[in-house]
Nucleic acid binder design. Structure first.
Length: 419
RNA sequence: CGGGGCAUGGUGUAACGGCUAACAUACUCGCUUUGGGAGCGAGCGACUCUGGGUUCGAAUCCCAGUGCCCCGACCA
């Protein structure tokens, strides 16, 4: 990609004070644009980051044996009434809209109801189970108060996975697998060692759920992190949990945290309410045992921005960066242009995603923009960048060094995540 | 849903109730410059959120609305 053709531009001025750090950084660097409170447009650079996250998620969902589908955003009132979740008393963050010809539709904030009803037409026998399906879709929640940039929006991108099992045991086994899978996803997304698996309240249909919490000041949740093993306990259930559920340790550190994912055991609450039953081996009707598992994709992007930055801008983990390499052509001159073009083509040929700053701008501006955009690897081409065959390479935020192209390609590819 | 704050060119800000609403940045043109947001010059760009009111006179004071931000409550 040639930077001269990138439609978005970085901004010299940050958005006004008071905005969340992730929103300020990502707006300045041209990744997102706020359309309304809690509603963001993802510009080309931002969309690339979302796609990287989605790619990591799809790989892991595939490994779990889950199939991707896409449910509707518009929700039929009737199915939600059957589970008692249509009324604004039960769920206060519905977006609802009138339908011509009479009636109302809701904009989906989750999809247990329509999916469970859909499954009643597909699941008849124990042979049809288990079923694991997921989607990556825009969700709508009419929050009382949108805030914190991408961390809590009224419209946001979410991955939601649902499981339908024959028994409690089968469900528990899958639930455990998802827990491991989620940790791998967050590791790959650059949050290795930063996620606390946290015990939280489970709602009316199971005692507990698990949340994936990233300790950060910008977080809205309060968790207690076991000092021995790092497991978390959500503040909402801390009173009933004196010792760590994982290791039995008794001392905790209180932290604010961002919830990047959660997994729920739903039991038969929805399958019973909506008549999702199957015949078991002995011909007896049983309700499917369900689970739901979410990851806030856009929130994850905001979380990463909130965690990894310096005064100059974001520093993306390699797997999420919009490009693998930022190629900076500095100093002008026909020879520099020729070399930059040559290197650009070589890097592309090695299957790297390259943003080539070919603009007619001064070096200082290019470096400043590159810092802001935060691509992890940078190759600088100019009069001082050495001989043919060698590249001047620098990691975001570090000093540059010279290395042969082949060596650089290996280093840059090690962390990439191709979409 | 309670409490507080803010609303002025694209962006960030300034302006005592009183001249043609100022500055920076961005953008356009010219000259100079060219490895860490260069310099000079000339331009373009604002019904000062909306609607009322007070006043000879309102960006400025008052009322209402809307929007945005923050704190708290809420949050599958």
């Amino acid at each position: 990609m040639k930077q001269s053709r990138l439609f978005e531009k970085t901004r010299r001025e940050a958005p006004a004070e008071g905005e969340a750090e992730n929103a300020r950084l990502l707006t300045r660097a041209g990744f997102i644009h706020k359309e309304l409170a809690g509603v963001y447009t993802f510009l080309p650079l931002g969309l690339k980051v979302l796609r990287k996250i989605e790619h990591i998620i799809r790989q892991e969902m595939g490994a779990l044996g889950a199939e991707e589908m896409r449910l509707t955003v518009l929700q039929d009132r009737g199915v939600w009434e059957k589970t008692g979740r249509w009324s604004d008393q039960a769920v206060d963050n519905w977006f609802k809209t009138k339908v011509r010809g009479g009636g109302e539709a809701g904009l989906g904030f989750t999809h247990e109801e329509p999916l469970t009803r859909l499954m009643t037409g597909h699941i008849r026998s124990w042979r049809d189970l288990p079923v694991f399906v997921y989607q990556i879709q825009t969700k709508f929640r009419n929050e009382e108060r949108a805030r914190s940039g991408l961390l809590r929006g009224r419209e946001f991108l979410m991955k939601d996975l649902y499981s339908f099992c024959r028994s409690r045991e089968e469900h528990e086994e899958f639930y455990g697998k998802v827990k491991q899978s989620y940790l791998r996803i967050f590791d790959k997304a650059g949050l290795s060692g930063k996620v606390a698996v946290t015990l939280a309240s489970g709602g009316s249909f199971s005692k507990h759920s698990h949340e994936f919490q990233v300790p950060a000041e910008a977080g809205e949740d309060t968790i207690h992190v076991c000092e021995k093993c790092g497991t978390g306990v959500n503040d909402e259930i801390k009173s009933e949990t004196a010792v760590c559920p994982e290791c039995g340790g008794g001392s905790f550190k209180k932290r604010k945290a961002i919830e990047v994912g959660n997994i729920f055991s739903l039991g038969t609450r929805f399958s019973e309410a909506l008549g999702l039953s199957f015949d078991d081996e002995s011909g007896r009707a049983k309700s499917a045992v369900m689970g739901s598992y979410g990851i806030g994709v856009s929130r994850l992007m905001g979380t990463v921005a909130e965690l990894f930055y310096d005064q100059k801008g974001v520093i993306w983990p390699p797997a999420l960066a919009p490009f693998d390499v930022h190629l900076l052509e500095v100093g002008g001159g026909a020879e520099t242009r020729r070399r930059a073009e040559e290197i650009y083509k070589e890097l592309l040929a090695h299957d790297l995603e390259v943003l080539h700053d070919d603009r007619e701008a001064r070096a200082g501006e290019k470096f400043a923009d590159a810092d802001l955009i935060g691509v992890p690897w940078r190759v600088i081409v100019g009069e001082k960048s050495g001989q043919e065959g060698e590249l001047e390479v620098e990691r975001r935020g570090e000093k540059s060094s010279m290395m042969p192209l082949s060596k650089f390609v290996r280093a840059a590819k090690s962390g990439q995540s191709h979409v």
